[in-house]
Nucleic acid binder design. Sequence first.
RNA 1: GCACUCGUCGUCUAGCGGUAGGAUGCGGGCCUUCCAAGCCCGCGGCCCGGGUUCAAAUCCCGGCGAGUGCACCA
Length: 647
Amino acid sequence: MKDFGVEDIINLAKEKGFFYESSSIYGAKSGFYDYGSLGSLLKKKYENLWRLYFGKLFDNIYEIQPSEIMNKEVFIASKHLELFNDPIVECRKGHRLRADKLIEENLNIKAESLTIEEMNKIFEEGKILCPLCNEKLSNLKLFNLMFPIFVGPESDLFLYLEDIRRRFEILSILKRDNYNKVNERIISYIYKQYLENQKIYGIVIENKTYIFNQDKDIVILYDSITNEYFLSTNKEHKEIDEYYIEKLFNSIHYIDIKFDVDDLQLLLEKYNSILNNEMYLRPETAQGVYIDFPTEFVINRYRLPLGLYIIGKAFRNEISPRNALIRLREFTQAELQIFFDYYNNIFNQEFDKYKNEYINVLLVNSRSKNVQYEELSLEDIYNYTGIDKFYIYFLYKVFRFYIDILKIPKNKIRFYQLDNNEKSFYNMYHFDLELYLDDLKWVEVGGIHFRVLKFDTNILNKVPKDILEDLEKLFIGKDNIMVGYDLWNHFILSKDRRFIVTRPDGSKFIPVELELSFGVDRNIFSLLVLNYDNILKLPEYLSPVQVAIFPLLENKEDHNKVARNIYNSLRKYFDVYYDDSGRIGIRYKRQDEIGTPYCITVDDQTLRDNTVTIRYRDTKEQIRLNINDLVSFFQDKFNLYRVVDII
RNA sequence: GCACUCGUCGUCUAGCGGUAGGAUGCGGGCCUUCCAAGCCCGCGGCCCGGGUUCAAAUCCCGGCGAGUGCACCA
């Protein structure tokens, strides 16, 4: 049997319409994919199964749909603006490196405490050279993995001012010695192009006029006292070649605003007011749940445990998207956040019911054993690691979803425990759920994160005074407390007291958070990779097309007519496909390739006794069934509730 | 983002300065009473932009995209 690799799946996906590169007729941008007709059906079915399973894991779970564009404060509280933000420095040859890491390695000082300006100064002075080519490093900028959105009519102005701010306060490239003198002929050539169809923007400061293009690749300086022109490429002192001039002309996205130094102050004030309109595309769905927790907790009558989940888009400006749906810039997450009282936790009892069940895990301590995973009972995991029972219980529930419902082969799934260096500081426990996708090895398709912080009373010295009183109550009778990382952060910043929960005995706490997080696109991709070998053997309730209907012979009018009627009667209930072209064998093959589990064929016997053949994909076996029984037959086969009920 | 390799019908592939060819697929027809690969006809392509040349899919430059390895993935 041929091995089907990732590349084959990508071709299949494109050819049959599962997914393909987005905007490809205009030249695709990596990291963006469109789901096609079949992919959309598959994804919808996956999500519905996920809803039925994880949405019913326990009582009191709800789906919510927060906005994908969220306030800046959300990401201040969540620390995404602070920590999702890498300072990048560049050398002449274009190598880009992490500025903070370079400083820490070379100068042995903690870069955390340095401002951008201070870091930039270190590189300007040439204290650190590019380790790859020994060239000077400069042009320090922040690279944030979030996509900013500027809301409201002034967004263009904001972008422009943001550019000015960086230019003056951080980059300070408008220094004279960056410029080469150029002759008037070149300048007039540029102006000529400018007048014809391109626009450039400029700023006048004292006696100097700076003109630059959108990409800031090129800046022209005109000195009105000496009447001289200078040109900077904003890189090295490169020859003024046609490439840069051409680049200037090609900057099609422009803002044409001119102002002089008197206006600058006014505009910077305006900038500060517009700053409030800066929002972000969410880099994870989770924050939507955390900020809606107070509202939903009250609406659902203060009951814990409370589960809130989102199936929706998240956006990250990844540096290098790879492997089709595995690393995208726009992707779909399915995340269930479970909030509960750590000290009064019903899930620990659930553990006992399943403690003799086995799951595949690779514990930190087992990595040296040179095994892919070990099959351990829940009780063993508890004994080996001391991890809380409720956490292991949820690992088990996730495992069953993949084994029993998605039908993932048992030797291709494992939980990978992250060690203290790998996991984030706010995760007390963190296991990735990984699937083995041949060429790609183990791929992370989900994660189970216990997002909590443990505080002693010293934390009270560091919190805002107006909520100090509320926080002190959490410590009554305790030396330390466990709190959900995000709920804590959002409480500190928003000061919304609904984050604090009161127990029946009057004591106060902030719930802890357990996050079951899944990359939907990665799951879809994995399902295709793991199930394809000429035939796409998806579980029948996941198959995009559920039933195909054929006339046995395309040139027999009777066959066609009856088959058409069946098609029309089934299409209201199921995802069906009608095909009367080519021979019967090729039609079966077409459906096998896209995973259609059942094919109905109308033949001569149908005309006599009103029965049709139903052929099952995996065995190629046929049964005969009366046309009148088809709807109930398939309703039973595709009943998702029953699928989930088996568990 | 860096380095290397590579972009030809939807898919696979030949051509590598001079009329873009095959296979598969898809559509139509013939034949066929149940599992692609019988016959006939048709549809469909050189990633994009510059440059060199009488002439560019082919050579050069840039962009975009893909693969692999680094790096990145709070």
